[in-house]
Design a protein around this nucleic acid. Structure first.
Lengths: 370, 370
DNA sequence: CAGGAAATTGCATACGCATGCAAAAAAAGC
DNA sequence: GCTTTTTTTGCATGCGTATGCAATTTCCTG
């Protein structure tokens, strides 16, 4: 079905190539009876202009509908005030939140966001050319990475790179992550303390440092208690894959009684399979723990125990790190690790240990870990 | 916790203001032994260059790491190849999908996306200035609108405006929506056919045309069967608000036995409250129907009956509409309405009528509506 | 009111590239 | 080989703005 109104042809400004004509500083200058420089200065905070002149200019600008041309400005200042943002995928439920907070943070500092997406299982090299052509002031990679060569290129071009939720070995990139390793470890402790015996890990993308660290921490924590053998399944951050992976786990001879999934997204899928395909009770038959603490984890239907991904402080840190580098014109290699905590809910059996109520969220605080 | 690597100062290029220096066409030209125009032509598809020259240029460019400056190009061509995208909010679960498909569609046509977000309960005027300074080739508004004045300004500037999932009265804006009205009507028919008596509508944002149309269709459908009085609650697209709204509904003297929520997001919240706060069985005690057919609607825990928001065709239509206007340099006012269908699942009592299985999805097809 | 300091202004230029135009080179036609 | 046609090339210019510099105005100070 299609309801079409009339087509209104745009007034042509001249020779076809110069179709539309935006108001320029020159025109404003003429109207205000000043020079083009004065107009420029009137729009530059802190520039040397008499208050009276600025008024005249702003008035003329308002009348003509003038707006400075950011592209032309970029050409001179060599600053686009644009940050290239690459998001691997958006179906992880934390990303709406990340994106919104990021947009707000950049916006507030006068920066815009050029967004690219769709690089879940490979790095962001494919869009690199495009991004760099727009002379972004910085590059933020969320849940994705860049090849070493391109990272070098960025550094050479003076474009700071900040990774979000991913670590990298590259000496000229910065990163902001949650304490994945510790999170995995703490979950292991929690599950062991809960009296579980057969553990399984549901993995995210293999190339993801975040996934590796979470798993490493988990295994490390279990090993402390002499548990070396655990189930492993590839959820791959995809619902469909996780579904299959979960079936494999529960259909095994010795199905796990405690599952840690590398992201809430996958954890919820595991829970669905456990309950509705295998008729398992959560947490009586199987405990399920996730990581990220997405909004849905709090829904009564799920009540998912999950390690918090501290989105707000992480985004803040990322923006800070970016601004710091842009303003100082230097490429840094700082790695910020933001601590999280285990939000204890109903999807995993409770251990005997102390569970505290902090700001309405239940926290498990075994002696000395915090 | 914070682990910091070393800070590597960026090599300064000269007088402080010219901190970093990107390779220019001029330099490539010198290296290749041609003129700057030749370089420009080598990078312009369809330009008049000998194959041999192009090779030389591309080789030199590769050696120097040259990348055309999109900003400078924009200044001349008057085309930024950037689309300004404003998304009202991202917590509606369809938006990750929309954003990804949109990015892909634009990317494929050589366009980039300048993203703005966070305008759920007001229009997008606040960021308008910023967007226009970057001389975007088009403006796409997802679940948000623009004041009439600014719409005029866009038209005057030759910037086409396309609304996604919102209609507008403005004569110089285009829009792509699903058939909200028909959807609401069909849901009414479905619920009436299912033998329900007491109906309620959970509303989204009051300023949203989408919300109004869905409600209008719903009421219209009910009225056909003589039902004029229905419950009404404001979910406001917010989980917290929906939670409260749902409590009000179910705590009433005559609680509804059929609830239509203006979005799946809200429908799921209603279901949570019904089940876990009021102990109601779905659909035995109350039927719940949503709109959008988000991924989670398919999860066994919810099995939400929902009217489909056809994201893929809608995004395609939006991109088409945008490109058409950009390429023809004319502002159109086309309103595309993309049909959806009722995906029948378990959250609402089934009527006696025909429920067909189409492509694995159950569709309710009352005589002659399709 | 003179004289100098400070604030303001305009001029000219540069940023990196695309493009019209004319000149040059290559190809084609005879 | 010479003219005509076609293709390729370089020159010059302009897109809209910011900014160093010098000229001008305004403001102070005595």
């Amino acid at each position: 079905m299609s309801v079409d109104g009339g087509g209104v042809p745009r007034p042509e400004g001249g020779l076809g190539t110069t179709a539309r004509h935006a108001v320029t500083a020159e025109e404003v200058a003429r109207r205000a009876g000043v020079s083009q420089s004065a107009v420029s200065r009137a729009f530059t905070p802190g520039a040397s202009v008499a208050a009276k002149t600025r008024e005249k200019v702003l008035a003329a600008a308002r009348e003509l509908g003038y707006r400075p041309n950011a592209m032309a400005r970029t050409l001179i200042t060599n600053r686009s005030r644009i940050i290239g943002v690459v998001m691997a995928y958006l179906d992880n439920m934390i990303y709406p939140d990340v994106l919104e907070k990021l947009a707000a943070g950049l916006q507030q500092r006068g920066y815009q966001m050029l967004l690219f997406t769709g690089f879940k299982d490979r790095n962001s090299d494919p869009v690199f050319e495009q991004i760099m052509q727009y002379r972004v002031d910085g590059l933020l990679l969320a849940s994705t990475t860049l090849s070493s060569d391109l990272s070098d290129e960025c550094a050479a071009a003076g474009v700071p790179v900040v990774m979000f939720n991913r670590m990298t070995e590259h000496p000229l990139c910065s990163s902001v992550t949650s304490d994945n390793r510790n999170g995995g470890r703490q979950i292991a402790e929690f599950l062991v303390a809960g009296g579980h015996r057969r553990f399984a890990y549901v993995a995210g993308a293999a190339i993801s440092s975040t996934n590796r660290d979470r798993e490493a921490g988990f295994r490390e924590g279990l090993l402390r208690h002499g548990i070396g053998q655990i189930g492993h399944a590839e959820g791959n951050l995809e619902l469909a894959d996780t579904w299959v992976a979960a079936r494999d786990l529960f259909a095994a001879d010795e199905p796990p009684d405690a599952v840690f999934a590398g992201s809430d997204h996958m954890a919820l899928a595991v829970m669905e399979v456990a309950r509705h395909e295998f008729g398992l009770r959560v947490p009586e038959d199987v405990s399920i723990v996730g990581y990220d603490d997405v909004g849905a984890a709090r829904w009564p239907s799920f009540s998912l125990t999950s390690f918090t991904l501290p989105v707000a402080p992480m985004v803040d840190a990322a923006v800070e790190l970016m601004m710091e580098q842009i303003e100082s014109s230097s490429i840094l290699s700082h790695h910020r690790v933001v601590p999280g905590r285990l939000a204890v809910r109903g999807s995993a059996r409770l251990p005997g240990g102390p569970v505290l109520d902090r700001d309405g969220t239940l926290i498990w605080a075994p002696g000395g870990t915090e």
